[in-house]
């Protein structure tokens, strides 16, 4: 008989376990960032620092792209911020887990919020409970470590790696979000808000192809406003 390990039964360990598939998907993306960053003139320390501080794949890649294009630091910061702005909506929906916590826990918890936090909150919901602070902390800190590690590995590998697209690795993140849809679906009340969200993104991107960060925020906000204004909840 093996003794149950007390740590493995904590919320921290549970969060880390639940985030593993997402962390694996993120790592291929993180390694790609490290690789491109070093190829564009970043030092390994810079590529790791950016992953630790910004902790947002699309924001990091866009900022990197702006810098290599010679657009300057201000343009790089603004473009990256536009893509990370959606995290504002994520920490907003994490309110219940942060409320009443001491400020230092709120500061740490806020930094660990990513798109994966939505998946974690949903996994907890599927078990019939609300994601606790420590559950989100466990998932977020595991993901951050994996993210920093993968940036380091990518930086070191910057010579040559086999084409990851051939193996469908780049699709892993897309698949993770598509797979979230059935779980997030709450029924017919979601038809109109979701259509508004997706439709806004499609129309906005057709008009402004380079502003994907704003398209995402506009789509999510208009969808949520639609849900708020529609008074058909019973």
């Amino acid at each position: 008989m093996t003794k149950p390990n007390p740590f493995l039964q904590t919320d921290v360990a549970l969060g880390a376990r639940d985030v593993i598939p997402l962390a694996l998907a993120a790592m291929s993306y993180g390694a790609a960032f490290g690789l491109l960053a070093v190829q564009s003139g970043f030092s390994i320390l810079q590529s790791i620092s950016m992953s630790a501080l910004v902790f947002g794949g699309s924001a990091q890649l866009v900022a990197l792209d702006q810098l290599t294009a010679g657009a300057g630091a201000v343009a790089a910061i603004l473009a990256g911020a536009a893509l990370n702005l959606r995290i504002l909506l994520i920490t907003a929906s994490m309110r219940y887990a942060f409320e009443g916590q001491p400020w230092w826990k709120i500061l740490i918890g806020a930094h660990l919020a990513t798109d994966a936090s939505i998946a974690l909150m949903q996994s907890a919901k599927n078990r019939g409970m609300l994601a606790s602070y420590w559950y989100l902390f466990g998932g977020g800190s595991f993901l951050l470590l994996a993210w920093i590690l993968s940036a380091g590995v990518g930086s070191l590998l910057s010579k040559s790696i086999p084409n990851p697209e051939r193996f469908g690795l780049d699709f892993a993140i897309v698949a993770a979000f598509v797979a979230l849809l059935p779980n997030l679906w709450r029924g017919r009340t979601d038809v109109v808000p979701w259509s508004v969200a997706a439709g806004t993104v499609i129309c906005f991107t057709a008009m402004f192809p380079d502003q994907s960060g704003f398209a995402l925020i506009l789509g999510a906000v208009l969808g949520a406003v639609t849900a708020g204004v529609l008074t058909n909840d019973e």
Partner: peptide, 21 residues
């Protein structure tokens, strides 16, 4: 309305992300 909007937000954000992808 605010609370209803906030509750719908994660789903709308993921729907937007998937549309973009």
């Amino acid at each position: 309305p605010w609370a209803r909007g906030m509750e719908a937000l994660p789903g709308c954000l993921v729907a937007s992300l998937v549309a973009m992808m």
